[in-house]
Amino acid sequence: MTTNGSSDPDRTRENIEKTRAELGATVEALAARIDVKAQGRDRALKIKGRARQRLTNSAQAMRGKTGKAVQAARQRAGTASLDGIARAAQQRGAALRRGTSGKVAAVRGRVTDSPVAQRAPAAARALRGRLVGIRSAARRRPVLIVAATTVGVAVAMRQHSMRRRVAARRRR
């Protein structure tokens, strides 16, 4: 054998290791795409963040309106006592808080009553059952799983390239 012939097995090993690493990354990406529980959790966190932002904005608006109410009460009162002004501001603030709490309860109800939130536990259980079956099959026949994963990746790549072509044609 020549020096070129002796490096071929080394290159082949490097290619195999590289392919394994790429395949592992692809399998992880596919697993993330079918993880319904994580997607539901992410969506719930987004909705929760939006609700929190709305609540913060409402609270800030309420503070601004309360300050305006105090100023208006002072102008109307003229020489009236500060106790009357404070009472009017408190009443206005309480009315604004009641209105804001109703909005918060409505948003909270929409989040917990959403179809995604209701179906997520059952979907997660079903997915967990499928993953257990896949794991046991992988332990019994690892070559079959690698082949099936390779076919799946090839199909996904083909679909992706077709979508890109269609999108490129639409842009023209």
Results as ranks from 00 to 15, higher is better:
T2M: 12
T2V: 10
N4D: 14
P9Q: 00
P9L: 02
T12E: 07
R13T: 13
E14K: 15
I16E: 08
E17Y: 10
E17A: 13
R20Q: 09
E22S: 07
E22K: 06
L23V: 08
G24A: 05
A25R: 01
T26F: 01
L30T: 11
L30V: 09
A31T: 08
A32V: 03
A32S: 01
A38H: 07
Q39Y: 02
R43S: 06
A44G: 11
K46S: 04
I47W: 01
I47S: 02
K48R: 01
R50H: 06
A51L: 03
L55Q: 13
T56A: 07
N57I: 07
S58I: 09
S58C: 07
A59H: 05
A61I: 06
A61W: 02
M62P: 11
R63E: 09
G64R: 10
G64T: 12
G64A: 15
G64M: 13
G67L: 13
K68L: 15
V70S: 13
V70N: 12
A72R: 02
A73I: 02
A80N: 05
I85V: 05
A88W: 00
Q90I: 12
Q90H: 11
A94G: 08
A95H: 03
L96C: 04
R97H: 04
S101E: 07
G102T: 03
A106P: 00
V107S: 00
G109A: 06
R110F: 03
D113A: 03
S114E: 05
P115G: 11
V116P: 00
Q118A: 14
Q118I: 09
R119N: 11
P121E: 10
A122R: 12
R125W: 10
A126W: 11
L127W: 10
L127D: 10
L131E: 11
R135W: 11
R135D: 15
R135N: 14
S136H: 12
R140M: 06
V143I: 14
T149N: 03
T150S: 05
G152F: 03
V155A: 07
M157A: 06
R158D: 07
Q159A: 05
H160C: 08
H160W: 11
R163V: 03
R164Y: 05
V166Q: 12
R170G: 03
R170N: 04
R171E: 02
